[in-house]
Amino acid sequence: MLEVREIKLVRDERKILNTLTATFESGRVYAILGNNGVGKSTLSYVLMGLESHRDYEGKVIFDGEEIDLLSVSERARKGITLGWQEPVRFEGLTVKEYLTLGGKLRLSKEELNETLSIVGLNNEYLDRLVDESLSGGERKRVELASIILVNPKVTILDEPDSGIDIMSMEMIERVLERLRDKGSIVIIITHREEIARMADEAYLLCGGRILASGEPEEIVNFYRKLCDNCQHINEPITEGGRVDD
């Protein structure tokens, strides 16, 4: 189980995350839904423990252990990983080297091929370079494949559909299904209703805090009603009125 307790992160006197509290269970997929700028990606960086986002207040607790002082590598070794919104490119590295982490992961040909097929790529990609020669969509698929192959206990997917055409929603569903089957906690960061609907549970984020949680359909409806064309981003309101600090 992963718990975040009263996480607070301030930048330029602005509360990016504001006493955010949530719990995530193994084998379930969670959508963190919200408009741009409400703190979704920031939450993913806090969970992953990126150097630039370690100055938060509150606690991140994984399987009963407080992991706030752990670095990215240390959290990754505990089984937490992050699928980046815009995956970075690597000069000179092949897809195979990237997926096997330079040979550190001992993976069979079958494992590699099967994982590539989940993300809609074939084994010819193994010799391609993870550089500008891959399109944004191809690079994103490689990133999703790499996430599956590290067999994570906690998977944070930051906008898994960015750079991927709308026809590829089935591919994202396949990725989520695989991760769910393996018992991973999956946290999807998204502003897309279609993606949120793939989750077992959804959280609506606004102003750095959870505004509502529940069934994805319910939260999507809430989001559509209150957040589409929002004129007061990061000043959360509910149907009943403004949420006080």
């Binding site: 992953m48 990126l50 150097e51 630039s52 670095s71 990215v72 590598s73 959290r75 990754a76 070794r77 937490i80 990983t81 992050l82 980046w84 995956p87 970075v88 690597f90 000069e91 000179g92 590295l93 080297e97 982490l101 330079g102 550190k104 790499s146 590290v150």
Partner: peptide, 24 residues
């Protein structure tokens, strides 16, 4: 840094990530 953190978020140490990036 982003290259480093990408590889470290998959379990490589800082040394291993640096080595892999530079090798490429």
């Amino acid at each position: 840094v982003k290259q480093m953190e990408t590889l470290m978020s998959k379990g490589l140490t800082e040394e291993e990530a640096t080595d892999m990036i530079v090798r490429g």
